[in-house]
Design a protein around this nucleic acid. Structure first.
Lengths: 153, 153
DNA sequence: GCCAGAAACTTGAATGTTCAACTAATAATA
DNA sequence: TATTATTAGTTGAACATTCAAGTTTCTGGC
């Protein structure tokens, strides 16, 4: 249990507090807009958005969970609700009997299309209106480096 | 419901996906370490850490909620659990009868001190080992700008 | 000084997420 | 080809968070 670790200096602490602030507040901001405009959580929106871009609008559950940055268990619960609402459908994978495939339905595409403009507007307002083009690219590159670390563990 | 919004271009999408990846994965990574080493969630750790730095190790609940980036309701539930565990105590504010003050107990300080090294080590590993000093400062400044937006709404 | 409205918290119910156990299917090993 | 281990997914219970009241206290007209 790593003792004798260098404490964060003032500059590091500022960075950390800014990051953790964004990390803790952004999901609520996204949820609120989506919930209000489309009765969708941000995680649900992410599932639909990933499926829309996928080959044949279909993905394996475990791949989907990875791409949505969530656990398989979380996805499984959410997928059941989305399926009950008719936004996706699930069926066994023909080549691997263990796997389940999730596919976006036409109705799911409609709901996603209705929700997207408001969502994109909010993302633009919160992120890309606050940063110019170069800053945004810089920020993204650094976030990607952190994300790579997170994905290793 | 803001229609006709400019979609995200490729560079913006990359930035957004990197950010949202960090936002969704970092809390789990922090929770796991703290849960394992100190039976604390990251939010609970945050509450204790803010109190430790506060004047007289005491804060009003609503100020504490703001500083911890959470809702007052969330804090209220968490505070009850922390109080039951003897890590904090709560009492009425002498100058404003509506307010509740939360104070870190000696036992709470102990638990925090035990949890801190492992937590800081993880933060360092995930963030500050991936970024050099200048990059970290840059990243923090940009995150702060986004956080300011989030705090406005 | 009263009264309407706002602010600060708390609470219980509804909802969402994690955790641990479980089933079923495939891959690996002998 | 049996046997075991691993992988994929689901499920129900435990736990955490949100949401919508509800209580109490304070503030600002009047």
């Amino acid at each position: 249990m790593s003792d004798d670790v260098a404490w964060l200096d003032d500059a590091e602490m500022e960075t950390w507090l800014a990051l953790i602030g964004v990390v803790m507040r952004l999901p609520n901001a996204l949820d609120e807009q989506l919930r209000r405009d489309a009765r969708l959580s941000h995680f649900e929106y992410g599932v639909l958005a990933v499926l829309e871009r996928a080959e044949d609008r279909t993905k394996r559950m475990s791949d989907l969970a990875y791409l949505c940055n969530g656990s398989l268990s979380r996805l499984s619960h959410v997928a059941r609700r989305l399926e009950d609402a008719g936004l996706i459908e699930r069926f066994a994978c023909p080549t691997d009997g263990r796997a389940t495939l999730a596919k976006l339905t036409p109705h799911g595409m409609d709901v996603l299309a209705k929700a997207a403009p408001g969502h994109v507007a909010l993302v633009r307002e919160l992120i890309f209106d606050a940063l110019d083009k170069e800053e945004a690219a810089q920020f993204g590159a650094l976030a990607r480096r952190i994300l790579n670390r997170l994905e290793e563990s």
